[in-house]
Design a protein around this nucleic acid. Sequence first.
DNA 1: ACCCAGGGTCATA
DNA 2: TATGACCATGGG
Length: 231
Amino acid sequence: MRNRLLPVFDRLLKHHGPQDWWPGDTPFEVMVGAVLTQNTSWTNVEKGIINLKHHRLLAPESICTSSHAALAGHLKPVGYFNVKALRLRNFCRWYLEQGGYGRLSRWPTAALRRALLSVSGIGRETADDILLYAFNRDVFVIDAYTRRIFSRLGLIVGDEDYDDLRRHFEDGIKRERGARCPVGQRGERRARASIYNEFHALIVHHAKDFCRTRPRCGQCCLSSHCPSAAE
DNA sequence: ACCCAGGGTCATA
DNA sequence: TATGACCATGGG
């Protein structure tokens, strides 16, 4: 069970090129997008974010002070607009209570993750999206695409517990890089965060462009890694 | 008309 | 711990 993750990463990167994620101009926009994209296509999320921008609501203060009806109205094209309006305000209230990005960026990753998870509406994947793409922490994001692709490749079952899978990817990538530093060796955490960032972006891109139209991935750039490609 | 989308919460057993 | 209901619009 050695060197099975990074070869997939290399293949995806070579085939699709760098993805330059997350789509969003600021860390706060990334966080908003992470909440809005829960079980929702990104094209719908974009419409909602554009609405927020046009009404000058893409800031934690204005989201907190806006009425539920107004916020939910702008989030209509996103879907789940009532729950997402509530979740966005929950998150923004917490975000301001903690003193904003500058303060939060001082927190250790584990504590920041626990705090994010304490916000109603922020689950494990959303928290990890925020940690990785808004705070550049070395956290590997697990989503439905990750489960689908890697279970097709025979590297996971697919229905494992979220945190078990996250650890599996994090530990596997660490090991495959030959990183023997226990904690905090200079540059190593950032280097891993950079790989997690690109890897997850490539997974989403690959899944969108290939896995829906070719469910057995017999033709895609991962076919040589995929047991089911022989069928 | 049907299925799915870059999940999470809550009630129930 | 583990299911199921629910949230809702838009594109294939």
